[in-house]
Design a protein around this nucleic acid. Structure first.
Length: 277
DNA sequence: CTTGGGACCTGGCTGC
DNA sequence: TGCAGCCAGGTCCCAA
């Protein structure tokens, strides 16, 4: 599942590979891929346009084009972007042929991924919360934003309008690193806990980026290679395994919000920490 | 405003 | 062995 570290890895690889290249042919194999507008509008809008710059905002990937328009891509659950793949699989939704001869292929097993073409990416990403790795993101800003939410901290962390880019698995890793129970109400965190949470958000995301993202399920980078971040996971998707932190308790799986699996260590992440008792 | 439930999607897993 | 039904979790929409 592509979250911030995976989309950042994709952006970095594609930036090196296709910046300055031009869309030569666009083949939309599945019209449902397009969030708004028609296949013809997308094709006409892209062909002949140069890719000036790539940007990541939350889990969105933004192609800034020479006509000052933007191609925005969200991979959702199973979307992958491949550069010059050896072959095109049956899940291919779109093929972008570039003037250099390179091919950018959008493949998506569950077909939840979407693309937009517009004048301003802000129209799509405008409601997102702050970027957790930007300079403007501070413990004080995090405290302010969490203070407006009485929902479980796990729900607040994965709410893209609170903070951008954190999904289900990294939220679990971040909360374990911060030793905070996923069901703690967001607005009950102490200043000290928010400070710790802030450090853990940045540390977990940065380490995952250094490892090229996590290849649980179907994620692969544009070069076709898997990331290795999941090898360093402590709790995410490790139900019934011994906690690597305390080596005493067993990783538990609960459902905090709807059917989203939440993994945590009941020993390292007590529901009522000492600072509140 | 916030919160939570349903819907979308489909390969792969579980259990009968 | 075959197959129905559940599960995964990204975002949007809606109601309270």
């Amino acid at each position: 599942m592509p979250e911030l570290p995976e989309v950042e890895t994709i952006k970095n690889q594609l930036s090196a590979g296709i910046t300055g290249d031009t869309f030569a042919e666009v083949h939309i194999l599945d019209p449902r891929l397009i969030a708004s507008g028609s296949v013809d509008e997308i094709c006409l809008g892209l062909v002949g346009k140069e890719i000036k710059r790539l940007q990541r905002r939350g889990k969105y990937l933004i192609f800034h084009l020479s006509n000052s328009k933007c191609l925005v891509i969200h991979l959702r659950m199973t979307g992958v972007l491949l550069l010059n793949p050896q072959d095109v699989d049956r899940y291919t939704r779109a093929i972008f042929r570039l003037s250099s001869g390179r091919r950018l292929v959008f493949s998506d097993r569950r077909r939840l991924g979407v693309i937009w073409l517009g004048d301003d990416a802000e129209a799509i990403t405008g409601r997102l919360g702050p970027e957790p790795l930007d300079d403007g993101f501070t413990p004080e800003l995090l405290r302010q934003r969490l203070g407006r939410h009485h929902a479980p901290i796990k729900a607040a962390l994965t709410n893209q309008t609170v903070i951008a880019g954190i999904g289900n698995m990294y939220a679990d890793e971040i909360l374990f690193a911060a030793r905070i129970h996923p069901q703690r109400e967001a607005d009950t965190l102490t200043a000290q806990e928010v400070e710790t949470l802030f450090r853990c958000i940045q540390a977990v995301l940065r380490e995952a980026i250094e490892n090229g993202g996590a290849s649980v399920d179907s994620y692969i980078a544009p070069d076709g290679k898997q990331g290795t971040a999941h090898f360093h996971f402590k709790v995410a998707h490790r139900r019934d395994q011994l906690c690597p932190g305390c080596r005493q308790a067993i990783i538990k799986r609960i459902e905090v919000v709807r059917r989203r699996g939440t993994y945590f260590c009941p020993n390292c992440q007590p529901r009522y920490p000492e600072c509140l008792i």
